[in-house]
């Protein structure tokens, strides 16, 4: 018990003293998660809109596939990307393995199906009259689509925050693709795994607390947004 308390007090000391190591790791984690979420959203939201609003053969199957991929294990994504990015892999020439970009690629693949799946559901939940109303008021096709997405903004935000939550907290893919290189590809989660195995509980605990705080902040932001957007 004593030593848990020691770890916690040590964690706060590290956070309050703005320990450069803790700071670097946190910054990288946020940078990677934000970039991956943005890229996945830019690719996923338009695709989800098309899937949700068009009728085509295999639509149901496609949605099921995305919903299944939401639970894609992070190590599987790590493994898959590793085989592509490693020296011998087809994309080996790009030298992306063990770089922050490598981690982002894995995270995009993790966040993408989540964002697509939740966005499809969000667009489905918009009243079909929204599109007709937009068109009847002179909106072009593009403007009408944007209006429907805006009407779906609760669900859209949920998709983004969930995507962000998934990638900021995952460790498997970041470990395999980033390699946990200190000061370069070490993220909060990979650092926690390493420090714990080294017995540096205070440091691991500090990072754990920061991660939870990030999750809390994101949630609070989401709640506020929902209240404002009502």
């Amino acid at each position: 018990m004593n030593y848990v308390m020691e770890a916690i007090t040590g964690a706060f000391r590290l956070i309050l003293s703005l320990d450069p190591e803790v700071f670097t790791v946190t910054l990288l984690s946020l940078r990677v998660a934000v970039s991956a979420t943005c890229v996945a959203a830019l690719l996923g939201i338009p695709l989800a809109y098309v899937v949700a609003t068009r009728e085509f053969r295999g639509k149901g199957t496609l949605i099921t596939v995305f919903n299944t991929l939401m639970a894609l294990p992070t190590v599987v994504v790590g493994l898959f990307c590793y085989s592509f990015l490693s020296r011998k892999g087809p994309l080996g020439f790009m030298d992306l393995l063990f770089t922050p970009t490598g981690i982002i690629i894995g995270d995009v693949i993790l966040a993408f199906p989540l964002i697509v799946g939740l966005t499809v559901a969000a667009v489905h939940s918009v009243d079909p009259r929204a599109h007709a109303t937009a068109v009847s008021l002179g909106a072009s096709r593009r403007q009408a689509s944007m209006t429907v997405l805006r009407e779906a903004r609760f669900g859209l935000m949920a998709a983004l925050f969930n995507g962000f939550g998934r990638v900021v907290a995952e460790v498997g893919s970041a470990m395999m693709l980033g390699g946990n290189i200190r000061g370069y590809t070490r993220t909060i989660t990979t650092a926690i795994a390493l420090e714990t195995s080294k017995g540096e509980f205070a440091f691991a605990m500090a990072l754990g607390i920061i991660l939870l705080t990030v999750a809390l902040a994101v949630n609070l932001l989401f709640r506020r947004f929902q209240a404002a957007a009502r």
């Binding site: 009243d127 009259r129 929204a130 007709a132 109303t133 937009a134 068109v135 009847s136 008021l137 002179g138 909106a139 072009s140 403007q143 209006t147 805006r150 009407e151 903004r153 957007a229 009502r230």
Partner: peptide, 29 residues
């Protein structure tokens, strides 16, 4: 099409304020 003003049956109001709704078409123009 923009010369036509259409009010559909049981009209749908966008998730916005009344003013946001009324100025919707103007904003699109």
């Amino acid at each position: 099409r923009r010369e036509l003003g259409v009010v559909l049956q049981s009209p749908y109001l966008f998730r916005s304020t009344v003013e946001g709704n009324v100025s919707y078409g103007l904003a699109r123009r």
